[in-house]
């Protein structure tokens, strides 16, 4: 060791990455973070704080009152049921569509892309209104059903849960398809071929290769659609009416019409908690998937 110093030690490879003590670029993030901190995060925290803090000190009285009412449980049930159904329908329709889109070429791919992006860009009021027309007793769906002989007389869709799920699924479908599509188009088709040469049958290939690789997109799609479906307000207003209550419609109406802000704040916080849980849950899942991938 160290008899000569003719050449610098080879092991002393010096790092090339620039390392600055204080990165002033952080300052550029401040305006956006400050703005959202004050106008977005602060109000949400205040909402949360006020709901458990009355003039008499901390209290969960408003929640106790809310959950003491069996009607409230029905509202929470409605909300979760509709959101779950909408998510399921969009997943079942969206998953194959995303893969068809990733494989499609030329005019078919353009058609599929247009069919996704165009509805995405049209206002929710316009789309919900369209579904009102489509689902009417004399609407397209009923005309088709009667014409094809599937039913003898028009079926009632408007102001039913079926109509609501159908309309909401239609409106949220692109939010399920696009995240899965962006993952599906990255999956190397040679992977399934490789799996086939290793003796994997079609079912095995799907469940052991395609499905795990597309899971990040599926998780993102589910999180998107579910969190939008629990908080939709315009769609139920137009497609099912005032008598069917969800957490979102109660929140809106108690502020806008009923002037019962205590109730509205309570349901808003419950919605917020569910939404945050979905976001954190999906982020955790996505991280887990990334690690095993």
């Amino acid at each position: 060791m160290g008899v000569t110093a003719a050449a610098a030690p080879v092991g002393a490879a010096r790092t090339r990455k620039p390392r600055r003590p204080v990165d002033l670029l952080v300052l550029l993030a401040l305006p956006a973070v400050g703005y959202l901190g004050f106008f977005f995060a602060l109000p949400l925290v205040a909402l949360l704080a006020k709901s458990v803090w009355t003039s008499a000190g901390p209290s969960i009285e408003s929640y106790a009152r809310f959950f003491g009412d069996p009607f409230s449980w029905q509202v929470v049930g409605n909300t979760l049921k509709i959101a779950t159904l909408v998510t399921l329908v969009t997943l079942v329709l969206g998953y194959p569509t995303a893969f068809a889109m990733a494989r499609a070429r030329g005019i078919f791919q353009i058609l599929l892309l247009v069919a996704m992006i165009l509805p995405l860009s049209i206002g929710v009021v316009v789309k919900a209104f369209s579904w009102q027309i489509v689902l009417r007793r004399d609407g397209v769906v009923n005309q088709l059903l009667v014409w094809s002989g599937l039913t003898d007389e028009p079926v009632r869709f408007l102001f039913t849960e079926t109509g609501l799920v159908l309309g909401a699924a239609n409106i949220f479908l692109p939010f399920m398809v696009l995240p899965i599509y962006s993952v599906a188009k990255m999956i190397d088709p040679r992977l399934t071929e490789a799996a086939a040469t290793l003796g994997a049958g079609p079912m095995y290939r799907f469940f052991r290769v395609i499905l795990p690789l597309s899971m990040p997109g599926v998780v993102a799609g589910i999180a998107f659609v579910f969190s939008m479906a629990i908080s939709m307000y315009v769609i139920p207003t137009l497609l099912i009416g005032d008598r069917y209550q969800t957490l979102a419609t109660i929140t809106g109406r108690s502020f806008l019409f009923l002037r019962n802000e205590q109730l509205g704040a309570t349901t808003a916080v419950i919605l917020l908690v569910i939404a945050v849980a979905v976001v954190l849950g999906s982020a955790r899942l996505a991280r887990g998937l990334r690690r095993t991938a």
């Binding site: 956006a32 973070v33 959202l36 106008f39 977005f40 602060l42 109000p43 949400l44 205040a46 909402l47 006020k50 999180a223 998107f224 969190s227 629990i230 908080s231 307000y233 979102a248 929140t251 809106g252 502020f255 509205g264 704040a265 808003a268 916080v269 919605l271 917020l272 939404a275 945050v276 979905v278 976001v279």
Partner: peptide, 19 residues
Amino acid sequence: VVSPLMMPGLVIGVAMLQL
């Protein structure tokens, strides 16, 4: 900064109204 996209719009609205 991306998170307002994932939060229920109504809840953001209610919270902002109060602020």
